[in-house]
Amino acid sequence: MTDDLIGPEELAEYLGIPLPSVYAMNSRGTGPRRIKVGKHVRYRKADVDRWLDEHSIEPEVV
C-alpha cells in the first residue's frame, strides 16, 4: 500500500471513531471521498484532510 492511501480501519483510527461509523458514512455518502480498488475501499489522506477542513466549525465570537 502506498503512503497516501489508507483503508477503513486506518481511517477510523485517524478520526478516532468506531469502524462501524466509517461504514455508515460510506453507505450514506457523508464521509470523505473514497476509491474502490476491486472489492476494497481506500482513502487518499489528502481527501480525508480536505473533508475534515470542509467540516470544521469556526468558533463563535461572543
Rank of each mutant, 00 (worst) to 15 (best):
M1P: 11
T2D: 09
T2Q: 08
T2F: 11
D4L: 04
D4F: 02
D4Y: 11
L5N: 02
I6Q: 08
G7R: 07
G7W: 02
G7L: 00
G7Q: 08
P8G: 09
P8H: 05
E9I: 11
E9M: 12
E9T: 12
E10I: 05
L11K: 00
L11A: 09
L11M: 05
L11H: 05
A12E: 01
E13K: 15
E13G: 13
Y14Q: 12
Y14S: 13
Y14H: 13
L15D: 07
L15P: 03
L15H: 01
L15M: 04
G16I: 00
G16P: 06
G16T: 02
I17Y: 06
P18L: 01
P18D: 09
P18Q: 01
L19K: 10
L19W: 03
P20C: 07
P20K: 05
P20Q: 03
S21M: 11
S21T: 15
S21G: 11
S21I: 07
S21E: 04
S21F: 12
V22F: 05
V22P: 04
Y23P: 01
Y23T: 12
Y23K: 07
A24Q: 10
N26C: 14
N26H: 13
N26V: 09
R28F: 00
R28W: 09
R28L: 01
G29P: 01
G29M: 01
T30L: 14
G31D: 05
G31L: 00
G31Y: 06
G31I: 06
G31F: 06
P32G: 01
P32M: 04
P32R: 01
P32H: 04
P32V: 01
R33T: 07
R33Q: 02
R33D: 10
R33H: 03
R34K: 09
R34H: 06
I35R: 10
I35S: 02
K36H: 09
K36G: 08
K36S: 10
V37A: 13
V37T: 11
G38C: 02
G38I: 04
K39E: 08
H40I: 12
H40N: 14
V41E: 04
V41K: 08
R42N: 05
R42E: 04
R42T: 00
Y43S: 03
Y43W: 04
Y43R: 00
R44K: 10
R44Y: 06
K45V: 13
K45I: 09
K45Y: 04
A46C: 00
A46T: 15
V48Y: 02
V48Q: 03
D49C: 01
D49K: 14
D49A: 14
D49W: 01
R50L: 14
R50N: 07
R50Q: 12
R50T: 14
W51C: 07
W51S: 03
L52C: 06
L52T: 00
L52A: 03
D53H: 10
D53T: 12
D53M: 08
D53C: 07
D53A: 15
E54G: 08
H55W: 12
H55C: 08
H55P: 02
S56C: 06
S56A: 12
S56M: 11
S56K: 14
I57F: 06
I57K: 10
I57M: 13
E58V: 13
E58D: 10
E58H: 11
P59L: 13
P59F: 12
P59A: 11
E60I: 14
E60T: 14
E60H: 13
V61S: 03
V61D: 04
V61A: 10
V62P: 06
